[in-house]
Design a protein around this nucleic acid. Sequence first.
RNA 1: GCGCCCGUAGCUCAAAGGAUAGAGCAACGGCCUUCUAAGCCGUGGGUUGCAGGUUCGAGUCCUGCCGGGCGCGCCA
Length: 581
Amino acid sequence: MEGGFPHPSKSSEFSVMRESVAQLVTQALAALQAQGVLPGGELPPCKVERPKERQHGDFSVNSAMVLARAARMKPRELAERILAALPADQTLVREGAVAGPGFINFFLHRAQWLTVPDTILAQGRDYGRTTSGRGRRVQVEFVSANPTGPMHVGHGRGAVTGDVLATLLAATGFAVEREYYINDAGVQVGILGTSVLHRYRELFAPQGPMPDGCYPAPYVADIARALWDRDGDRWLAVTEPPRAVIDFAIDQVLGWIRHDLERLNIRFDHWFSELDLHRKGMIDAAVEQLASQDLIYQGVLEAPKGKQPPEDWEPRPQLLFRATRFGDEVDRPLKKSDGSYTYFAADIAYHFDKARRGFDQLVNVWGADHGGYVKRVQAALEALTGRRDLLDVQLVQMVSLFRDGEPVKMSKRGGTFITLEEVVSEVGADPVRFLFLTRSSNSRLDFDLELAKRQSNDNPVFYVQYAHARVHSLEDKLAERGLDPGRWDPQALVLEEELELIRQMSRLPEVVEGAALAHEPHRLPYYLMELAGVFHAYYNATPILVEDPVLRGSRLKLARALRQVVGNGLSLLGVSTPERM
RNA sequence: GCGCCCGUAGCUCAAAGGAUAGAGCAACGGCCUUCUAAGCCGUGGGUUGCAGGUUCGAGUCCUGCCGGGCGCGCCA
């Protein structure tokens, strides 16, 4: 970690201009260390940024401001020293200037930028990938919808978020595994079994109303009929649903869930069963380990203040985990009053198991209503593994459906509930995947079914895909007119718009890496919309298939590079790259 | 009561602690029919909820308020 830049470059491999600049500055800082201007050893981290203002150059470095204190110099003075210490024989930077409070702004040689299209085309589908993950193992757990009913759009958002995050991490050089945690134990799946059993009996004789809390939705009857098809009247005599019936129902629902995920092109490496945790004694083992660390006791929790406590609330002693030792607000219960484990207890065992599987990092994508669980799971993980930062939880806010700007009214009771499957069937996988990532996970998302289907520029998916298709139509047009592809000569590209397009195209690797490391997949769609915007503007203003073979060839290569960048970006999102639209 | 998330242009939202806070839509003004998309170009629009603090620098970090969402025990 020499020179104060967090990611020592491997720019020969990726040809990221930014890395090359970082390398240059690193050399200068090392020289200043040798001269005694800067203290030896590791320096605080500095940044190379893309300035918003063109007049601030191609790249901007903040080293002088960060290191001024250590150097006991004013930032601008130090900036001058850094500039003077740059290697003399470099061909990258045309000009370096000290500006503002002490930024060093670098203006690159035009010829350097003009090497980028060739680099992109040479790297092809690999352009955008980096190795900074260094093969470290990351597990992304996502969806994990209860196997008690069809997935809704909120699950879909979590599914896309987790899937793309996993893809981005893989593209950044991590070894990634996708995992689905099946909540096939506990009360809810029992209710599913009871509901199915009720509908099953109705196939033989009229029954009374469903017991309280059961699922009235039509899919339950579908499961009951399938159960009848397989087992006949075998379960007529039972009163409580046997495990075989529950398992049958869960399998049916999981089949739908897999199908829905498949339609979104999402596949998991592992499906992890909560029931296995119970059966294999893994919860007992985890709780015993906590007990051996004196982190478990019998205690009485206070009822939550502020709102009405539950009807049947009464203070009673229960088994508690000392989560407060690890930053949680209160100690958390491990067993219910009937003696069975809480969901939290199973989650402790589950995450303990993840840790023992040797992952360097765990990422969970959860619905925002699970936000209250983050601290306690992290607390338990820290207690069991000593690692505070092993788990990162990305909370995904809810999705609201709209149609032509009007909210879609949904009620489970009224039967107007719209499932993920219905949305995907109506608008297609591409808009769902792309549009679900057009907000930060922390923001609620409005999804307009009509907008998602629209083939026009106000639909971001169309807008980006169309940039890709446009280049292909240029190829068609080329053949149609009997033109040859011309010749590449960077000298022919003299327009500022062309340089700007190249600068934007050069950003893909840093956007991918940044989105992966920050666990913020929405950055990629935003980048692609901006890139597509720059290209569309260029395309609208500038004829590409011109008579002059040199100009034609040069602009065509630019367009082909653009197609590669947009295509790679869309592929990382799991969105198709149509050649015609 | 406590914790987490959110509060940014009329609307929906961006912005690894960086310079003069950006896009899309809407509004306003212009051009138009030309490598497929009633399209393209441009303009205006802000005390980043409020008040302090940290530092070279805060929409971003800290503290306290205001407003909204989620959660805090037997759902997962």
